[in-house]
Simulated assay, not measured.
Amino acid sequence: MKILALDIATKTGWKTETASGVWDLKPNRGESSGMRVVRFKSKVKEIIQIEGITQVSYERPAGANKSSIMAESEMIGVLIDLCIEMGVEYASYSANEIKKFATGKGNAGKPEMINAAVKLGYNPIDDNEADAIHLYLLTQKDLG
């Protein structure tokens, strides 16, 4: 099973078997907010094709920030449509599930998530990449 794990946001953390990182999808000056979705779809499609991804896992949106949840939900809709179109399985996990897996605490903070990734030998750019790393490992565990 070839996994792509995504912590979806304007700064999207991602992890595959061979690499990980963060995509900054913030629209440039003068661009519509829809460019975030266009860039996201393009990057996901490229990785699926290049790495032969068969499973995409993503963190479900949550929180009190309405605009963030709306933006993430738009990207998730595009992601699901793309997965169906390309014949790729997909699954979602809550932030609490990912945090509990990584640190043993469902309410771990960003520094704890980064430190947990470092302890595993990773060097995440930020908490978005750290979350994607842990989501990748959690998906791997769940798939056996």
Rank of each mutant, 00 (worst) to 15 (best):
V37E: 10
Q49D: 12
E129W: 02
A9M: 09
D127Q: 10
V38D: 00
M86T: 05
Q49N: 10
W14H: 08
I80F: 03
Y93L: 02
L82Q: 03
T103W: 02
I133S: 02
G121M: 08
A116L: 11
I84Y: 14
G87E: 10
A5D: 03
R39E: 00
A102R: 00
W23L: 08
I80G: 02
L143Q: 11
D131K: 00
S57D: 04
S68I: 02
Y58I: 08
E97Q: 15
K105S: 15
M35R: 14
S67A: 13
T103I: 06
D127S: 14
L82S: 04
V56D: 01
I69A: 13
A19M: 11
S92M: 12
A108M: 10
V88S: 01
G87W: 10
G63L: 09
N123T: 13
M70Q: 13
T18R: 12
A64G: 11
T139Y: 00
A116Y: 07
K2N: 13
K45E: 14
A62D: 06
E51Y: 10
M35E: 14
L137T: 01
K43S: 08
G106D: 10
I50A: 11
A116H: 12
M75S: 13
N123A: 11
P61F: 06
D81C: 08
K105C: 10
L4G: 06
D7P: 06
T12R: 01
Y122I: 09
L143C: 10
N115V: 07
N107E: 15
L25V: 05
N65I: 14
A102H: 01
I3N: 04
E72P: 00
W23S: 01
E85K: 09
S94N: 11
I76V: 10
V44I: 12
G104T: 07
D126V: 05
V37W: 00
E17A: 14
L25E: 02
R60P: 05
G63P: 08
G34E: 12
G121S: 07
E46G: 05
V118D: 03
G34P: 00
Q140K: 15
L25N: 02
S42E: 15
V44P: 07
V118I: 15
D7Y: 01
V78A: 15
M1Q: 09
Q49K: 14
